[in-house]
Design a protein around this nucleic acid. Structure first.
Length: 1046
RNA sequence: GGGCCCUUAGCUCAGGUGGUCAGAGCGCGGUCCUGAUAAGACCGAGGUCCGUGGUUCGAGUCCACGAGGGCCCA
């Protein structure tokens, strides 16, 4: 037992591997959960990754953030269960398997066999799972990987079915159309990714057609299209309400087009009769182009729509809801019928007798001819543009309405918006911005997918009476089944398709609709389905809903964030999560998006093996707030290690080195009351209390970035000021009380820092904790992650002392700058320095002036208030005070102050008040209105700034010079000790040979030297055995020889 | 085309509620300090705070317009 010295040579990746083994042996994660059993629960939801690809470095970012908050909450005394989950269904999985099989169409999948195909899908999903777990564990992402939820399991699917049944019972599931890019030859819709593969330049018809207005004979709207085949399905046309339109006479007819497009559309001369805004056209009725459908009240009218542009066409847009997404949306909003006279093969149906059976694209010319013949065609030509083709078979794609099941989300839009108000978003702007806007414009959720590997839509339809039934549980399925169900039951296709139900109404047979549901519904169902609720675990579900915290990439606003939110609001009218952190992209070193095609994808393992997981985690936390993109490269991670980790580590090494030499015992040594400790210690403890407050506040606000940066600043102060200033208190302690104070203060700072870092850098934190706490206290918790988060010790805070220390450090800076200016090295002692500091807090802290004196190597530092001989003043206006008081006159006042003569300035500065004349008026300004600053006076060696002047006495007397020589010698001896690899407490005999001046100096200061370099004897002869070094002191050769004593 | 975000030193980033010399780290050159340090200190070079207007006594900060970049969606 007891502290042992840590090695300055540290290998962070190795250290982390060791910690991982320690956690595993001690089962620390489980212990952290057990320790908080019965405490208030803090709920985290894991957004299930699709485990069909290798995890990348951006996943490390997300997983680090996911990990940090639960660790923090655990330390704050919450029970934080963390269930892993895997998203296993969907098109990406199917495509992966298609690739393996060398096939690429639904037809081929069916030929191959759906049962076997789905078996392979299931298998492929877990191919990468092991890699995901391996990386997650290596980066310290604590999650229960042994009991994950898996979206393909029967339990999960049953819960999803239960949800759908709830929606069904409330009439929120309906069958409607969804317009999709569709290949008529392959008979399948294409994903947006597939569509993007097939864009190409092509020539299409370009026709402009008359729509004759019913109530204004001789007047027509002109509409333009490149797809004449959609005209038979026309139900309406649309204008932009704010755009200007003209009624133009041309020959014996009047034509209506957008004003800006009139010249382009109207051939030949025309006369503008009237100019109107689009909104005044709304409601007009026109004669249909074709008579294939019966009249209807809402049919063939003009509607307003924001999507209409005047970029091309006529400004009046033909609407065929079955063949355009915007058209369909308009039809839905206004309750228009959908005419859909095209079959899945791309040919007209019997609804359009003249062209029934014709492929639509081939019918284009005939339709144009028909319109021309009836005098409805205004103009016809061709049009070159880019258009999507099927990437498999090269057929032109049709935008085409497919029958599809929808969730009527729009009916709950208000609840969606209201629930969003209850969520804390990080960054904040997502709430009103990206997510809020998305909800404002929400459309019904097109739920069904015509695919194979996914959760089947549990809707069965009676062949006889047409009854539709939504199955809500397995029990119900068994009960309604026409025959005994096979066991074990697989709820996937094709098995589920074979299940027939008996019709409760007519006794006929129900068959399942063939569709699957959108995978986003799977993941959004996770709060319910991860527990197989409501069939099991009711209490777990209730305790764990809603989540306190989720975190994913910002791309999930329309993905998981939305699906969770929508399902939760539909079911429970509550948000599914209270706090949501959105992460931005990880870019490469040059700020480019990482992508396989660019070849700039960084492997997380290479970074982890070089620098460790903590360094990568810390980089992600500290480099920028979560909502900002992050540029990542090896250099950036290396900098974290060098700048922060090693600084902290070296402080730790320093502490353990001397603490073990002195047998410091944190439990046994009495700790002096903070108020009785030296100012340096009180300063550090005040900084520490401030740090705890800031880190706590930041972590509470889901802002690890500010917490990390605060810790960095503290460690910087700790290493470069506190330890630097206090070094001798450890290795040359004369005063027991002071030594105790020093050890306890530094110990406290290191232990607390370790705890504050624990959520962010769990490995390094653990190592420090083990070395500092567990090494001396068997009774302490086994792991830092089992400890409580530090409390803010308000009584330690001393803001004034912190400010005074800032001033002391600033004075030191000035002093060093002055030395540098006159080229006097710091090792050369000087007799005195004068610090002019009229309003400084330093007057109250003589101890801090002592530190300044040591740091500047000036035997005396005199702090003076106002020293008229050495400094000049300048007096300026305090704009922040005078501005509100005098308004515009403030500039006049400032100018008046600038006009003061040097003598007047001096008087004003010393008296603290000024009388100036502005616009013939006398204005008196008091101390709070004046900004009095001192500045350096010419002719002195001094530096000035921020109200301070430091003046050095640069006279080097022979005594001072000898002291300087001795300091040089000591420095070289220490250097030699280090080169000789002596233990820090190794005593020696020192022999020195050099010029007479040095010898003289050494004789004068022999004892001090001996004490500094731990020499029992100092000899003035170079010719002895030992560790020999030839050095140069102020240009003169000197020999030093060290002989270790046994 | 729409929505949101970003733009401050060569690079990475700070800069509550407007207050008059704009900061840090890294990198570069130089000098120095060191019984923990691969660290640190000091000096130096390096800024039209993206641009243009506006509000104001006063704008990196607030408003408007514009430019460039990013993300999401069409």
């Amino acid at each position: 037992m007891g502290l042992s010295p840590a090695s300055p040579r540290v290998n962070f990746p190795e250290l982390e591997e060791r910690i991982l083994r320690f956690w595993a042996e001690q089962d620390v994660f489980r212990k952290t959960l057990e320790a908080r059993q019965g405490c208030p629960q803090f709920t985290f939801y894991e957004g299930p990754p699709t485990a069909n690809g290798l995890p990348g470095v951006h996943h490390v970012l997300a997983r680090a953030y996911k990990d940090a908050i639960p660790r923090y909450r655990t330390m704050r005394g919450y029970f934080v269960p963390r269930k892993a989950g895997w998203d296993t269904h969907g098109l990406p999985v199917e495509i992966e398997v298609e690739k393996e099989l060398g096939i690429n169409s639904k037809r081929e999948i069916e030929a191959y066999g759906v049962a076997e195909f789905n078996r392979r899908c299931k298998e492929s999903v877990f191919r990468y799972e092991r890699e995901w777990v391996r990386l997650s564990e290596r980066i310290g992402f604590w999650l229960d990987y042994e009991h994950p939820y898996v979206t393909f399991s029967n339990e999960y699917i049953e819960s999803v079915w239960w949800i759908l049944r709830q929606l069904w019972d409330r009439g929120l599931l309906y069958q409607g159309y969804k317009v999709v890019p569709y290949c008529p030859r392959c008979g399948t819709p294409l994903s947006s990714h597939e569509v993007a593969l097939g864009y190409r330049e092509t020539e299409d018809p370009s026709v402009t057609v008359r729509l004759r207005l019913r109530d204004q004979p001789g007047t027509s709207l002109l509409v333009w299209t490149t797809t004449p085949w959609t005209l038979p399905a026309n139900v309406a046309c649309a204008v932009h309400p704010q755009v200007a339109y003209v009624k133009a006479r041309q020959g014996d007819e009047v034509l209506v087009v957008a004003k800006d497009l009139a010249d382009a559309v109207l051939q030949g001369p025309y006369e503008v009769l009237e100019e109107v805004r689009g909104e005044s056209l709304v409601g007009l009725r026109y004669e249909p182009l074709f008579r294939f459908y019966p009249e209807g009240d809402r049919l063939w009218r003009v509607w307003a729509a924001e999507f209409v542009t005047t970029e091309e066409g006529t400004g009046v847009v033909h609407m065929a809801p079955a063949y355009g997404e915007e058209d369909m949306e308009l039809a839905r909003r206004h309750g228009l019928p959908v005419f859909h006279p095209v079959g899945p093969d791309g040919r007209y149906t019997e609804e359009v007798p003249p062209w029934a059976g014709r492929f639509v694209k081939e019918a284009d010319p005939e339709i144009v001819a028909d319109l021309r013949q009836r005098g409805l065609l205004y103009r016809a030509g061709t049009y070159r543009h880019t258009y999507p083709f099927c990437w498999r078979c090269d057929s032109p794609l049709l935008y085409y309405a497919r029958a599809s099941w929808h969730v009527a989300v729009t009916r709950c839009k208000d609840q969606l918006l209201r629930a969003n108000e209850q969520i804390r978003w990080v960054p904040e702007h997502i709430q009103r911005g990206r997510f809020g806007n998305w909800l404002e414009n929400v459309v019904d959720w097109a739920l069904s997918r015509e695919r194979y590997w996914g959760t089947p839509l549990p809707i069965w339809v009676c062949e006889v009476c047409g009854l539709q039934h939504c199955v809500g549980s397995l029990a119900e399925l068994r009960e309604m089944a026409a025959e005994q169900l096979p066991e074990p039951l697989d709820l996937h296709r094709p098995y589920v398709d074979e299940i027939r139900l008996r019709c409760p109404r007519c006794g006929g047979t129900l068959r399942r609709v063939p569709d699957l549901i959108d995978v986003w519904f799977d993941s959004g169902a996770m709060p319910v389905a991860q527990w197989h609720y409501p069939f099991e675990n009711q209490e777990w579900f209730e305790r764990s809903f809603p989540a306190d915290y989720i975190c994913e990439g910002i791309d999930q606003t329309r993905g998981w964030f939305y699906s969770l939110h929508a399902i939760s609001v539909l079911l429970f009218d509550r948000p599914a999560y209270r706090n949501c952190v959105c992460l931005e992209l990880v870019l490469d070193e040059h700020g480019e998006k990482m992508s396989k095609s660019r070849g700039n994808v960084l492997d997380p393992w290479s970074l982890i093996q070089r620098f460790g997981a903590d360094a990568l985690r810390w980089f992600f936390f500290s480099v920028s707030p979560p909502g900002m993109p992050k540029r990542l490269g090896p250099a950036a991670v290396e900098e974290v290690v060098r700048r922060f980790f090693l600084t902290l580590w070296n402080t730790y090494v320093f502490f353990t080195t001397y603490a073990s030499l002195d047998r410091f015992d944190p439990l046994g040594w009495p700790a002096p009351p903070v108020k009785e400790r030296p100012a340096l210690d009180r300063w550090l403890l005040s900084r520490l209390a401030g740090l705890v407050a800031e880190a706590t506040e930041s972590m509470e606000a889901y802002n690890p970035t500010d917490a990390a940066r605060a810790v960095e600043r503290f460690v910087e102060d700790l290493s470069t000021w506190y330890v630097r200033r206090g070094r001798r208190r450890y290795w040359k302690a004369r005063d027991v009380q002071d030594q105790r104070s020093a050890y306890h203060t530094l110990y406290e700072a290191l232990v607390t820092t370790a705890k504050l870092m624990a959520p962010l850098a769990p490995f390094l934190s653990e190592e420090l904790y083990q070395g500092l706490v567990r090494a001396v206290d068997d009774g302490a918790p086994v792991s830092v992650h089992l400890t409580d988060w530090p409390q803010v010790r308000e009584q330690d805070r001393d803001v004034e002392l912190e400010r005074a220390m800032e001033e002391a450090r600033w004075v030191v800076s000035l002093g060093r700058a002055a030395r540098s200016r006159v080229r006097i090295r710091v090792r050369q002692p000087l007799a005195s320095a004068v610090v002019v500091a009229p309003q400084s807090l330093l007057h109250r802290y003589p101890e801090l002036v002592e530190h300044v004196s040591e740091e500047l190597n000036c035997k005396q530092v005199e702090l003076v208030g106002q020293d008229s001989a050495r400094v000049e003043y300048e007096v300026r206006a305090r704009f922040d005070v005078l501005g509100p008081r005098y308004g515009p006159k403030v500039q006049e006042l400032a100018a008046a102050l600038e006009r003061l003569s040097p003598e007047e300035v001096r008087r004003v500065a010393l008296e603290g008040r000024a009388v100036v004349e502005v616009e013939g008026e006398q204005v008196e300004l008091g101390p709070d209105e004046l900004d009095v600053r001192v500045r350096q006076r010419e002719g002195f060696v001094a530096e000035a700034g921020r109200g301070f002047v430091v003046v050095l006495d640069t006279r080097i007397t022979p005594e001072l010079r000898r002291e300087g020589l001795v300091r040089e010698l000591v420095h070289h001896v220490q250097q030699a000790r280090r080169e000789a690899n002596l233990r820090v407490d190794q005593r020696i005999v020192l022999s020195v040979a050099g010029p007479p001046e040095l010898v003289e100096a050494l004789e004068e200061h022999r004892e001090a030297v001996a004490e500094d370099v731990l020499a029992d004897r100092v000899e003035l002869a170079g010719e002895v055995e030992g560790f020999r070094r030839e050095v140069s002191i102020l240009g003169q050769p000197v020999t030093v020889v060290l002989r270790p004593l046994t």
